[in-house]
């Protein structure tokens, strides 16, 4: 098993104003899985993603990633896990506006201590792979939304992560670009990458092998009663 969440709880605030964002969430993901998580706004999707991505720590429960207990780690160990084991794709791309596509993709390699030449070679290859081999020196402002997201995916994959986490990756894209991104995810998954994708679009979720649902912080395998619209 690649990762396992056991009874994860995450609350925001204290006392009367406490918000329960995750309630005893359990999840098991195997190597090579492609999972979509659906849920309405405010249901705890991003909170779950942050916990999975080691950006946030659960209040209780255990999280085992790649055989390591994440719950016991300190800040520096967590950033190391994010660097080497996790690839993030965000709804709003999160590219650095002042850097070229190549430098954006090469960014994680700086922190991994890779030499400049090697970084640029690998970043160029990664961009080639997402179909942007011609646009290495373009700045984000010179790229379309779909292209930006593909740069972001190339960046997420540059360190060969164990798991690709995507939070509404098509949320800011038109349908055609969204389809291209889904195509890319499927290709990466076929090559063996484990993918966990959050979406509230059922059409997008269909691309995954398995769909899970989250409602009011509760994660389950099947469609809950309240989620008529999604």
């Amino acid at each position: 098993m690649l990762l396992e969440l056991k009874d994860i709880c995450r609350n925001y605030g204290t006392g009367q104003a406490v918000v329960v964002a995750l309630k005893n969430a359990c999840l098991q993901v195997n190597e090579g899985d492609y999972i979509a998580i659906m849920g309405p706004s405010g249901s705890g999707k991003t909170t779950l993603m942050n916990v999975l991505g080691c950006l946030d720590k659960a209040d209780s429960g255990t999280y085992i990633l790649d055989g390591i207990d994440i719950s016991a780690m300190n800040d520096n160990e967590l950033s190391d896990v994010r660097l080497h084991k996790i690839g993030f794709v965000f709804q709003t791309f999160q590219l650095l506006a002042g850097e070229t596509a190549l430098d954006n993709v090469a960014l994680p390699l700086i922190y991994a201590g890779v030499k400049k030449e090697e970084r640029e070679k690998r970043a160029a290859e990664a961009l080639e792979k997402v179909g942007l081999g011609e646009r290495l020196s373009f700045y984000p402002s010179q790229l379309s939304g779909g292209q930006k997201q593909r740069v972001a995916i190339a960046r997420a994959m540059i360190n060969n992560p164990r798991i690709l986490l995507a939070d509404e990756p098509t949320g800011a894209l038109d349908q055609a670009s969204g389809r291209q991104v889904m195509e890319l995810f499927r290709k990466l998954n076929e090559e063996g990458t484990t993918v966990i994708m959050i979406t509230h679009d059922a059409n997008v979720a269909k691309n995954a092998e398995k769909v899970m649902y989250i409602v009011d912080g509760e994660l389950s395998d099947h469609f809950g009663g309240d989620v008529h619209e999604q």
């Binding site: 520096n76 950033s79 996790i86 999160q94 700086i110 922190y111 960046r155």
Partner: peptide, 14 residues
């Protein structure tokens, strides 16, 4: 920018 860098694994020191 800072958030993104930290998210992709930049340690505090960096």
């Amino acid at each position: 920018e800072i958030g993104l860098k930290k998210a992709i694994g930049a340690p505090k020191k960096a």
